[in-house]
């Protein structure tokens, strides 16, 4: 499903964020990327999500080479992904419902069926009662769950989450990890970055460890 071969990312000024990264994630697999901050976790996830292009090597998702894709084809590729961001990237002037509705609107989903899809996604993350609230009225954990609801409303085949439990209490973090596990059980491929060792001990997933831009064993 996801395959990286000899991938490197060099930013302007010659800084190498990633060097010679190769790995493969099968369909329906759950993999965690760990490492210290600055090890290149976020960059790796951005390359897989098609947000940034690799400087060298190839990133293949569902058989498509992201580095060689036409710019205009990227939006359609992204609709196969559910993205969960560390800083949530919620829209503060839109309600909970509208935030989750946005991906459906973008993919021109049938407007008659969209509301029930939005509610189904909110139900999965336990925010069904808060449809008309605005993001600022939510707690940190609720905001993260809202971000997850937005990521899964399109029923993506791949869920990519960057530090989804970043600033959360252990209880909240466990709840979110349980949620991810349940998505994985219904066949969603998961790629999650975290620096939280305790989560890894609890779930024992496949781990890809980064150290200074390289995979360390």
């Amino acid at each position: 499903m996801i395959s990286l071969k000899g991938v490197g990312k060099r930013y302007h000024g010659g800084f190498d964020a990633l060097k010679d990264i190769s790995f493969m994630i099968e369909k329906g697999e759950m993999a965690f990327v760990t490492g210290h901050s600055g090890a290149g976790k976020s960059t790796l996830l951005k390359l897989v999500a098609g947000i940034e292009r690799p400087s060298s090597g190839s990133v293949l998702v569902s058989g498509q080479d992201l580095g060689r894709m036409r710019r205009s084809a990227i939006p359609y590729l992204r609709r196969n992904f559910g993205l969960v961001f560390q800083d949530h990237k919620l829209l503060s002037n839109r309600t909970v419902f509208e935030n989750v509705f946005l991906p459906l609107q973008i993919s021109a989903f049938d407007p008659r069926e969209a509301p029930s899809r939005v509610r189904a996604a909110l139900d999965k993350v336990g925010l069904l009662g808060r449809e008309s609230a605005y993001p600022v009225e939510l707690s940190g954990g609720e905001q993260q769950r809202l971000c997850i609801a937005r990521a899964i409303v399109n029923r993506p085949s791949i869920l990519i989450a960057d530090e989804p439990t970043g600033n959360l209490d252990a209880d909240y973090a466990d709840a979110i990890m349980d949620m991810f596990k349940s998505f994985n059980q219904v066949g969603v491929t998961l790629l999650v970055s975290t620096h939280d060792e305790s989560l890894l001990e609890k779930f024992r997933p496949r781990i890809i460890t980064l150290h200074q831009g390289r995979i360390s064993s």
Partner: peptide
């Protein structure tokens, strides 16, 4: 700006 950035991240085309 934020709306545009988020919309692009979750697959909005430039036309949209």
């Amino acid at each position: 700006k934020d709306e545009i950035e988020v919309a692009k991240l979750i697959g909005a085309t430039n036309t949209f």
